[in-house]
Design a protein around this nucleic acid. Sequence first.
DNA 1: CGCTTAAGTAACTATACAGTTATTTATGCG
DNA 2: CGCATAAATAACTGTATAGTTACTTAAGCG
Lengths: 219, 219
Amino acid sequence: MTSAVKRSKVVGREVRRRDPDRARASILAAATAEFAALGLGGARVDAIADQAGINKRMLYHYFGTKDDLYRAVLEEAYAAIRAAEGEIVLGRGSPAEAMRELVLFTWRYYREHPEFLSLLATENVNKGAALGGSARIRALNSPLIAKIGSLLDQGVAEGKFRRGVDPFKLYVSIASLCFFYLANRWTLGVSFGRDLSEPAEIEAWGEHVVGVILGYLRP
Amino acid sequence: MTSAVKRSKVVGREVRRRDPDRARASILAAATAEFAALGLGGARVDAIADQAGINKRMLYHYFGTKDDLYRAVLEEAYAAIRAAEGEIVLGRGSPAEAMRELVLFTWRYYREHPEFLSLLATENVNKGAALGGSARIRALNSPLIAKIGSLLDQGVAEGKFRRGVDPFKLYVSIASLCFFYLANRWTLGVSFGRDLSEPAEIEAWGEHVVGVILGYLRP
DNA sequence: CGCTTAAGTAACTATACAGTTATTTATGCG
DNA sequence: CGCATAAATAACTGTATAGTTACTTAAGCG
């Protein structure tokens, strides 16, 4: 060993560095992956700490208990999707074209964030117990509901959409059709002997969802 | 063919009685509830044995490991829904009326078997790993696909349904719309400040699904 | 500089957990 | 009856797990 002169910044050697923001972020990222892959009960705090490259003590320091960390992961995942939803700007085409964009936005977001789908599934197996205690979530309404509402009004005014469709129900319908295929494709694939993760199948399902929604909306 | 008369020979005294069928059944029932409530990782073998009122050793005797028991639970749940699907007899009304019955069957089955929905969600978080190894599941095709297929043909022939709809896609669409609402109503409820477990809301969603499917199928 | 505070570490603890051992007892069959 | 076998039990084992303790070290500030 070389001399342990640790007086000032010893550049040549590994020096313990402090970086709270990075530590928090890397714990959250590791926890998201762990909870998404194994569920609440299956996730291991030690595995999260290892994966994050931090000492387990710091995880407790920053986040409290395992349940607190789980809630933080859910809150972050919700904040992220709501932020993305807030940024959609629909093109200036017809209502049908805008609706198509909106459906494909949801489809793309779900495809690109499988961990969000898994967390959602896990938290619902848990009957929403963790999120129920989160005021932060209750404050985050989806910007999509309002966008869908005005799109529906516009479509009805132009005689392109049927009357009387509830924006919330339409939002949940779009989410249903996008979520179910992606989240449950493993059991669907086993049951029906098809590989639903094939890019061509995935592409086709997105178009199918557009077709179902626009078909339903016809006057 | 077994099950001769169970002669419990004694009376006032606590006698250890043997009943393999009952033991197996009660283990499966307890395991179904436990896995559905807590997921694969969260389920506890001791809790299942307690709940079933049997000694843990017997659980291992009948089912092997925890994973084996989990697979048995999934297989039974699948066998049950396939059996129910096989028994539907659609009325003699129009194709639209028959399709409505078919949608409402799915809706009712999901409502009455929340544990099936939770198991499905859990197994998909698990990426279908347990079911992937089950030849028994692969052999169980859904009888609904064929029924939907002939219904679609009939509707097209009568000029009531649009052409070119894939029965598998329609089946998955119906399942999506029914599953998502029920399985994810906890987080939906928190996010949107609505109690989606209200009987009136549940009733309305079933009708909405019928409306979406029939709306889409219009020529 | 020196001191306070927050960031960091290793090792520990008490309990929970999946799976096993050793043993006992009921039951069907010759 | 007597015996082989399957059903049942309690107590146990080695490890994993969430959470903690006791301590060290970097950074910011007067």
